[in-house]
Amino acid sequence: MSPDQPSPPDVLAEPTHPLLRLAGISHAHGRTPALHDVDLEVGAGTAVAVTGASGSGKSTLLHVAAGLLAPDAGTVELLGHDLAALDDAERAQLRRRDVGIVLQYGQLVPDLPLLDGVALPLLLDGAALGPAREASRAALAGVGLSAAEDAVPAELSGGQAQLAAVARALVAQPHLVLADEPVASLDPAGAALALDLLWGVVARGGALVLVTHDNVLAARCDREVRLAHGGVQHDLDLR
């Protein structure tokens, strides 16, 4: 994949082509095994909940799916691209154009005001400052943070920072969103707002993978993949 070519649009034209495919993923953190032979396929237009007790490997799975962690074994295919075959720059391009990532902690650049911080995926992709800020302004308005445009993350509450992170993940209109406890620190109103935006991705034909402890949130999804001790305990279709 050449870094300057746009990502292939035909991926979404074939609804049977999985947006995310993990096969045989095994990974250990040092000597502690985290994942063992995990398979997962996420097609277009689906929301998948990844659940399990603490230490079951959920966050590790998300990091592997996002291309942030190279697994010890197994293949990761994001939108049809085998991540192992791409170099760092190409993986970075995927992350800023096609995949939105919401992590559990510490994900906003600490010294940038929200307006610039949320615009980062667009800026990194070569957009000019003006249009990028416009898009960022719209995204912040979507999560109700217009008044905090010039604030830096240290001045925000945990919930506000999380909303900003969700806004940033969605600003480039990605096809796939990977989120780790995206609404854990939000009050019900904020959570509802964020979840509506995240489900918007699904409505547009994209896919959503949510790592969560919350059973109510898991029940909102179309599928539940439950992990236990690094392996898949069950893969339920809830429809």
Binding site: L68, A89, A92, L94, R96, I101, V109, L120, L124
Partner: peptide, 19 residues
């Protein structure tokens, strides 16, 4: 140290090593 953490965040958002 703080710069390193900042760079890790930028990588998540999609910054390449060259960036």
């Amino acid at each position: 140290v703080a710069r390193q953490q900042r760079e890790a965040t930028l990588v998540v958002v999609g910054a390449s090593p060259r960036d």
